[in-house]
Design a protein around this nucleic acid. Structure first.
Lengths: 206, 206, 206, 206
DNA sequence: ACTCACGGGACACCCCGTTATT
DNA sequence: AATAACGGGGTGTCCCGTGAGT
């Protein structure tokens, strides 16, 4: 889309884009996708509607952009967290700790996560963009569990079910954290929860 | 609210009300709170807007009505499920099985549940109506865990954290089920997940 | 409209009617004709909409009823005020004092008077109901002036113009009183104003 | 408000604005504030609702704009009329003649004036915008009277009361003119009325 | 005489996206 | 790359009046 018009133009353009995404993230999480109006986002970003539609084809396109950025970021975090864990169990717990940064981001990323989920249920495009990464994560978890089972660390179990339970636990903790952030130290509680499940699966050393 | 003005009138009125709530449930689930318009709900219900606003003060009031009905129904199910379990562990698993009916209602109650959650994040009234039952359930679960610990069935643990984990797991499974209903037998998987956690807490018989 | 169903029925009916008119007067003057809804009036009166439409054919009919009652009351006051004045001048001033009760009615009759006027400008029915009494008053005033001129009390002048000026003054004082009630003692000021005009017309005793 | 974005755009914008105000003036006068719908005004002006709300924040804002423009226009007329009068008395009468243009604008500005007044009674914003100019005029009139008294042209009198009477007379004549435009030459009659009051106050040359 | 339930039709306001312009 | 002006199409809410029923 961007032709060469000098570096400063590009910088200006990207700066504008960033202003939009920042404002949109804020608005979407605070008011939800539908209630957050393009006009409001533009006002927050300090730009005009024309500028908005110069950078994004539609409101939905912007939302998808945010979603993809979020998923990409998530990917990076997961792959870096997978390394450097001596045992499978500790690896799982380390991954669970990843929810930490999400919980800690006090600027309201939690509602945005829920908004992503909610839109995914209704908007086929959003769903398509989400289902793939979701399956990927599930598969990775299952593979890890499989390893744990085959190396004797864990009891035999249906690895996919365990993966779904672990992911479910993490999601459920996010849900609760979004709903009542100050009721508990949700990052810590999530770690504990994962530990419980792993513990239930660990071989009991006679 | 109703004075005596004929049984037929009352019946008609209540049926209209039911038609509205049914249509609203459908619309809210499918399109979300904001995108579901009052006009559409009325059209679905086959009534006029005048009738709608005769029964409900606002769209939000209708939504709250739906939420409260859902919570009340949930309450009944939980209390009936608590009875008739020989051990604490089995009691917990029985409660987990309660998610079954929720999952099975394939007509799209799952998205509605998410919609409830999503609104609770932004609408103070919805939040207030939700936080109380939530805390009640959490407390009940914690008490059960406590009993299990004191009668030696379970290992010592912070009962509240365990309750949060169990609830989190259930919620997370609901989330996944809403997102990808046919990927697994979610009711069964939820039961398994709860079992894992309980297992991790059970005393190992040396 | 009312058949004989016993005296107590009639009493009840009239009581309801009174409740309606009272509430309507209040609502119309506070919010204006259009903004005062039939539902609100009914709520204020503590009756149902059905009862309302049993007594009045329409909202407009009720308004006309109020207007006519007001005009009738005005008529009574004017005719009683005309008597018992020794000179024409003093008669005029006595009539000016009639605005007193109107000003003093602190319950907000002033805005209602303006509402009458405003509706008269747009609604032909209201206009027709108003123009006749208006012309009658104007004629009476003019006749009085005429008498004053012919008996030498006043200078020669076009009696109709004087009548219009006197009425205009009274109306203008009402307008100001409605706009800024506490800025002055409007009843007294009106009397003074009429006095000024009369004074300007009185023969100067050389 | 407008940054530089072409003269043609500005011209187009301002013309649209004018089209709106013109249509609104017409509609408000003819049907009253409440009964004049934004949709009708837009249709009359030949623009879309989007354009309307681009120029005016709300229907009320438009009304206030109209009011302020009217008051500003009035101000100009009054200040220009004050000059060039040899005596106080003649100055007052000259000012009274100012009602002339108001009366003559037969396109229905009179009802609009009443509409202004009516709204001022209920809408605090309109009231605030009106009370200040009203007080200003009253003060100016009173000062003039004061001058007339101190230079011996007029009899001693409470200048404020006289001012209120003069304003009242003018307002009352407007009211009558709005109600029954063809019953008299209201501009002329107003002049006569003011003359009567002034006459009543003039020193009688023994 | 009075009630409740309801229909049909606005109403003010807002929202997403486009266009003319620079 | 960015602006202001604008179009077309809803949105929730309200409102006047009717009719079945007691």
């Amino acid at each position: 889309v961007h032709k060469e018009h000098g570096v400063e133009m590009q910088q200006r353009s990207e700066e504008t884009r960033r202003k939009i995404t920042r404002a949109a993230l804020q608005r979407f999480s605070q008011y939800g996708y539908n209630a957050a109006s393009v006009a409001d986002i533009c006002a927050d970003a300090g730009i005009s509607k024309g500028a908005f539609y110069h950078h994004f084809a539609s409101k939905q396109a912007l939302f998808l952009d945010l979603l993809e950025a979020w998923l990409a970021e998530l990917d990076v975090q997961f792959t870096t967290a997978a390394h450097g864990a001596s045992t499978i169990s500790q690896g799982m717990i380390a991954m669970a700790s990843l929810t930490g940064p999400v919980f800690e981001a006090a600027d309201g990323r939690l509602p945005m996560f829920l908004e992503f989920w909610n839109q995914a249920l209704r908007d086929p495009d959003v769903w398509k963009a989400s289902i793939q990464p979701y399956h990927r994560y599930q598969k990775r978890f299952a593979e890890r569990i499989e390893q744990g089972i085959s190396n004797g660390e864990l009891q035999p179990a249906r690895s996919e079910s365990v993966a779904r339970a672990l992911i479910g636990l993490a999601l459920g903790m996010l849900l609760q954290a979004a709903f009542d952030p100050r009721a508990a130290n949700w990052a810590e509680e999530t770690r504990l929860g994962v530990q419980m499940i792993i513990q239930g699966l660990q071989r009991r050393k006679a």
